[in-house]
Design a protein around this nucleic acid. Sequence first.
DNA 1: AAGGTGCGCAACCGCCGGAGG
DNA 2: GCCTCCGGCGGTTGCGCACCT
Length: 303
Amino acid sequence: MVRRPYCEKQGMNKGAWSAEEDKILINYVKIHGEGKWGRAAQNAGLKRCARSCRLRWLNYLRPGIQRGNITEDEEDLIIRLHRLLGNRWALIAGRLPGRTDNEIKNYWNTILAKKCGSFSPQSCVRKVNHEEETAQCRNHGSMNNFDLVNVDQPSVAGMSGIPVLPQEEKHCFVDKGIGLMNNSCSIDNQGLFSSLLVGDDGDENHPSFLMNIDNDNDFIMGLPDMDSLLFPGNRTMHEDNNYDIFGGYDKNNVMSSSPYDTTSDDQVVRVETEVMHDQQPSLHVELKKLAMFLDLEDEWKEP
DNA sequence: AAGGTGCGCAACCGCCGGAGG
DNA sequence: GCCTCCGGCGGTTGCGCACCT
């Protein structure tokens, strides 16, 4: 298949957006809503390609965007999330209300990456051959329900700047629909925590988490109740005391509902959401727990 | 004051996957 | 199943500004 060029048509504007163009785009979205950017560009009379319009809207024009002045707390969170997620800027941004993936990416590349030198060796990053690890995963074959998967490389691939978890043999106990996490966690070839790990002894003393892993992204959003770890006041719990996954902040910077947090599921109880800033002491405690959970305890520094 | 350099950030680009015809 | 459209994502580029010499 022939690849479509980024901007097909000749005569399109490129480069910085003018105030007039912004105004046109804002007005168009007000009337017609988001999406269908190709038509938006065309109908609004913008000489911009669809993706340029989308990018401009998502990163700069949509309501709720917070620009500049990244606080120490946010910086701390970015660093910790980056340790966990790697260059998954969209996921990281999803945890920072009002911040965009582009801004966080830029902030990391220009500010935080330089600070990495002060991190402990454990948090050093490495490049991993994506193909190699993808093949490695494929070798495990398709995951039927409750496949037992041996993950030799609990590392990540496909991106740079990923923290490397301690190398040790892990076993993933995977249930396609629901997974139980009992021991530790690993990152799959996609750089995602897509495998659920159980101690060899099946130690039931470990906390368990009820998760939906319809896809990797959903999975990682639900990393051992990541929301409750990062946003302690924001929890969803099943009657059996297992945590459920739900997304963080959506693109409109509103705490989003999980696809699983539907009204049809009356077992799910959403506890009142609290603002992160009011949770700082608890946040640090929970982050510490997270660090312990991921064998990154050594890296945890009390604020 | 002028030129050089480094940095920050907005925007571009390529790849990928999902949805729909 | 194939093709096209569209959106999401992460890496990269290049412009503009500030600072330095």
